[in-house]
Design a protein around this nucleic acid. Structure first.
Length: 508
DNA sequence: TTCCGACAGTGGGGTCGCAAT
DNA sequence: ATTGCGACCCCACTATCGGAA
């Protein structure tokens, strides 16, 4: 199949706003792609590469060369070249990769260049990713989307699932099994604003688990072989020897467990997330690092114990199996209750201990990937500050022509100046975007670099955030984590905004 | 007819590894 | 030694579609 065929379908999908229309376009193409190119087509049309990452980003993609006039490149051609690009390493590799990217772009038309540019930079923006592609695969292979979804949970990679469905139908989908050593797509949690809303969503009794601010780990053991995977299914086994040893010490030799690793201080309180993340992502000097910053692991789910697959069991039963396989000190602390006061005091307790919050889980839900909000719901405490808007950046895509990303500052009472603490674009409605664009242009102050518009520091905005972290980037040495806009405060002047001292007191 | 779950899009800060400077 | 880039860890929120109620 030619690349241009895929490009044309992608453009049709982008032009179609109705989801069923997008699915129709995608399914039509899937029904005519050859078995040898199905994985490539599915990957491209859900915005990813079969090679996953190839070491090419926005910088390497600047200044594309002159295009061809006639489209002749096949999917196989493009895929082979991307595989070669990924394989490059060592000195001179950046130049070599850039040259090969030019080779690729020289071999395609401008229409194809535009598609590849967006695909390689991870911004396809055609309004269809995995969720829509799942439906398209189901339609093209005459299977139920639930079967596709379940196969994706077990296999972890949609193009492989789709290719199997297109050639083997429902039977091929049902043949996917949990395989020890190959990661499954992790189950994710939705969120709720408070404990009462969480209990209401779950409806009745729920298991409340501590939400630890660490790194998600899926751990597989087969005999003496242990593999550890992250949320995006990357293998980090070599970076977490403590976890490997802990799992090897368990009596069961056939396990798949879900949990969290976190660096704790000697007193048991959690280290800042930055410390855990740094430890987990460091590949060199691990023996020394584990002396300085040991990792603890807490498991909260069991997908397989002693040869039995547990994904379809209700959460409550999986918990019982987990408790037989893992000693209590490796289990995530939890409370099962339907009582609001009890749940709220449990929440207060976990926050007092310095942890992130709670995850509430339905006792009856099976383990299912990618369905945020169904069986698992998280809740965290919320902080707010009144900050001053110092500047704003022009938005992209559907925010084109709107001032979107806000630069936020706190007041320094000594100098009267404002200290930048980070940016946010979250929480804005279309109405608010339109309003603030107009308002910002009225108070624009001084030159802009074409991207950022500096503002007179007059507008006060109420910002919610999860915490204050140390920052090497901002002048105050601190930044807000997960800042989002709640509302503007027209009743407040810049002199009424919160101060850097207030922010600093929250960093502990 | 209204409500709500699922999805895609729009980006945030921090850190590491590697290559280039 | 420092800087730039790519990748990935954590993530919140809104708009929209379309099926459920």
């Amino acid at each position: 199949m030619l690349l241009i065929d895929v490009v044309r379908v992608s453009e049709a999908v982008a032009r179609t706003s109705a989801r069923l229309g997008k699915i129709g376009h995608l399914a039509e193409l899937l029904s005519r792609v050859g078995a040898d190119e199905a994985e490539i087509a599915i990957a491209y049309l859900s915005g990813e590469l079969p090679q996953r990452q190839i070491g090419v980003g926005w910088r390497t993609l600047q200044d594309p060369p002159s295009p061809k006039l006639v489209a002749t490149a096949t999917l196989t051609d493009v895929d082979a070249l991307l595989t070669r690009i990924k394989a490059v390493s060592g000195p001179g590799s950046q130049a070599a990769r850039k040259a090969m990217v030019e080779e690729l772009f020289t071999a395609v038309t401008s229409q194809e260049q535009s598609f590849l540019l967006r695909l390689l930079s991870g911004e396809l923006r055609q309004g269809a990713l995995d969720g829509v592609m799942i439906e398209a695969i189901a339609k093209a292979s005459d299977a139920a989307s639930a079967d596709v979804r379940r196969a994706l949970t077990l296999r972890g990679w949609l193009p492989a699932v789709g290719a199997a469905a297109l050639s083997g139908g429902v039977e091929a989908l049902r043949a996917f099994k949990l395989e020890v050593g190959r990661p499954v797509a992790p189950m994710l949690a939705g969120s709720a604003p408070n404990v009462a809303a969480v209990l209401e969503k779950i409806g009745g009794e729920a298991a409340l688990e501590w939400k630890l601010d660490g790194v998600r780990v899926q751990t597989h053991r087969s005999g003496d072989d242990v593999r550890v995977f992250t949320r995006t299914l990357d293998d980090i086994t070599d970076q977490v020897p403590e976890l490997v040893e802990a799992v090897l010490a368990l009596p069961s030799t056939d396990l798949v467990l879900d949990g969290e690793v976190i660096a704790l201080r000697p007193d048991g309180r959690p280290q800042p997330f930055q410390v855990t993340a740094s430890r987990v992502s460091s590949k060199t000097g691990v023996p020394r690092l584990r002396e300085e910053t040991p990792l603890s692991v807490f498991f909260f789910d069991a997908l397989r114990v002693d040869g039995a697959d547990l994904l379809d069991l209700p959460y409550g039963e999986r918990q019982q199996r987990l408790a037989t396989a893992v000693p209590p000190e490796l289990l995530t602390p939890r409370l099962v209750t339907g009582d609001l006061p009890a749940a709220e005091s449990f929440f207060a307790e976990v926050v007092r201990r310095g942890h992130e919050g709670l995850v509430a889980k339905s006792l009856t839900s099976p383990y299912a990937a990618g369905r945020r909000g169904a069986g698992w719901i998280k809740v965290k405490p919320r902080h707010t500050l009144d900050l001053v808007v110092l500047a704003a950046e022009w938005g992209h895509g559907r925010r084109e022509g709107k001032l979107s990303n806000l630069h936020l500052g706190a007041r320094d009472p000594d100098s009267g100046a404002f200290v930048m603490l980070g940016k946010t674009f979250k929480g804005l409605t279309d109405e608010l975007l339109a309003w603030q664009t107009e308002r910002f242009l009225e108070i624009a102050d001084g030159p802009t670099d074409g991207w950022t518009v500096a503002l007179r520091p007059e507008l006060v905005v109420e910002i919610a955030f999860d915490g204050v972290q140390r920052s090497p980037r901002y002048p105050g040495g601190m930044a807000l984590r997960f800042a989002r806009v709640l509302r503007y405060r027209p009743d407040k002047r810049a002199e009424d905004a919160d101060t850097v001292e207030t922010v600093r007191s929250l960093m502990l």
